[in-house]
Design a protein around this nucleic acid. Structure first.
Length: 429
RNA sequence: GUGGGUGUAGCUCAGUUGGUUAGAGCACCAGGUUGUGGCCCUGGGGGUCAAGGGUUCAAAUCCCUUCAUCCACCCCA
């Protein structure tokens, strides 16, 4: 624009100003609070990790690894990557800190920025923020239910009512292999292959499962006859899945079985799930996860089952903003101090200090403006009270205290050491 | 990486078949009240019309290029 600055925010990143960052802080408090109530402890891990962590953990065949990572080489020639997701780091820390030998089960959560070099669009950014939870060490269906219930509860606590849970089991690797074979055979039938669109033909080569994601009506119609994973689950897979569903029903968490649901990451086994909303356009998944029983092993650890999810904060806040939930108001300022003249301005720092020391929020004018402008500022800040300090007040030893809402005005002693918090508790406090 | 839309004041947007000094609302500042905010009235500041090039007597307007941004594809939170 006409800014003298020719340095700009990177595409797909954002500056959050106070009105918005306040919403974020509130959301983060809700997330942390619910996580702790579910017995999950916060883990903080580096934003920068060895590239190899994601190549092996997220999976070399995933789009994330193939084309979406911000990767750089440090001065020692090591390849580093800005984390595109959290799960591999949690697993790395689990092994590196030897957590498995301290306790059989760990429940960990994280919250922070992730980076993916995609083309931005609605609900998709290059720096975005996720919270996620992982339970490592438990194989039981009840642990799947715990994670889904956790995601469900947090979304609800954040004001997201319009979400739908999509549930699937992709079974064990053997079941997936068998399904993949049959699916390929189906797709390669000449009368099928010719009818599906170009994208789907490409998917046959790269990742046949993805054809189930196609939005082309003709493809969707043809694929209704394609074999789905649920027909290939082993008896143990089926038993596990049945118990997960039973657990959700016990909790009254509604779900849609979706045998065509595809997750983008390589490491999932058995249960996978997504919470979707219809408020966001194309990027409608606000929370996604599943079981990953083999990931710890791929990093050389002992066979360790695990389940987890990740959820996008931008998408949730956008969806809540679209819904009819009342927006949170910025907190009001308790006292705005109007200093008139040099004598008064010499006192304001001590006055502010005392008010803040009493636990009140307090601010003043730093531009030497007149009373009218200062009152206007107090109004703009939605101050509850204006404390007027002028030569008259100093001479009388009494400051004027104005109620900004009703307009009533009273007096208080000019000596801050005589003040207590009750003096400033207005009618609306 | 591919396709489409949009770039005019801090924000949301007008701007006629190309025609004089580019406008409105909101926001900001000041005055109406020499010490009292919100509502109202009056006035004011603020623009390289995204940038660069071209056509023309004349370009915010037409053409080209670049950049930014949004939406969608791919894929995912």
């Amino acid at each position: 624009m006409n800014s003298p600055l020719d340095i700009h925010r990177l595409q797909g990143t954002a500056d959050l100003l106070p009105a918005e960052s306040f919403r974020w802080t509130q959301a983060e408090q809700v997330i942390r609070g619910t996580m702790l109530r579910f017995g999950f402890g916060e883990i903080r891990f580096p934003v920068l990790e060895p590239t190899e962590l994601f190549a092996r953990g997220t999976g070399a065949s995933t789009d994330i690894v193939q084309k979406e990572m911000y990767t750089l080489t440090d001065r020692g020639g090591r390849s580093l990557t800005l984390r595109p997701e959290g799960t591999p780091s949690v697993v790395r820390a689990y092994l590196e800190e030897n957590l498995g030998s301290q306790r059989p089960v760990w429940k960990l959560f994280y919250l922070g920025p992730m980076f993916r070099a995609e083309r931005p669009q609605k609900g998709r950014y290059r720096q975005f923020h996720q919270f996620g939870a992982e339970m490592i060490g438990a194989a039981s269906p009840e642990s799947d239910v715990e994670l889904i219930a956790l995601g469900h509860t947090i979304l609800r606590d954040l004001g997201m009512n319009a979400v739908r849970l999509h549930l699937n089991s992709i079974g064990s690797p053997d079941a997936r292999r068998a399904h993949n074979e049959k699916l390929l055979a189906f797709l390669e039938q000449p009368d099928v292959f010719q009818k599906i669109d170009e994208d789907c033909r490409r998917r046959v080569q790269t990742n046949p499962l993805r054809v189930f994601d196609c939005k082309n009506e003709e493809c969707v119609r043809i694929l209704r006859h394609a074999p789905t994973i649920d027909q290939f689950l082993t008896a143990e897979d089926q038993e596990h899945f049945a118990r997960v569903r039973h657990g959700l029903e016990t909790l009254g968490i509604a779900y849609d079985l979706d045998p065509r649901m595809v997750r983008g990451l390589d490491y999932y086994t058995r249960t996978t799930f997504e919470f979707k909303t219809n408020l966001l356009g194309a990027q409608d998944t606000v929370c996604g996860g599943g079981r990953y029983d083999l990931l710890v092993e791929t990093f050389g650890g002992p066979a360790t089952p695990a389940v987890g999810f990740a959820s996008g904060i931008e998408r949730i806040l956008a969806a809540v903003g679209e819904s009819d939930v009342a927006p949170v108001a910025l907190p009001r300022l308790d006292v705005f101090v109007c200093g008139l003249g040099d004598n008064a301005r010499g006192l304001t720092a001590a006055i502010l200090s005392r008010l803040r020391g009493l636990g009140l929020s307090a601010d003043t004018d730093f531009l030497g403006r007149g009373l009218k402008a200062q009152m206007k500022e107090a109004n703009r800040l939605a101050a509850r009270l204006a404390l007027i300090v002028g030569d008259d007040e100093i001479a009388r030893g009494r400051f004027a205290l104005r109620q900004m809402d009703g307009g009533g005005q009273s007096e208080i002693p000019a000596d801050p050491s005589q003040w207590d918090k009750g003096l400033f508790v207005g009618v609306n406090a």
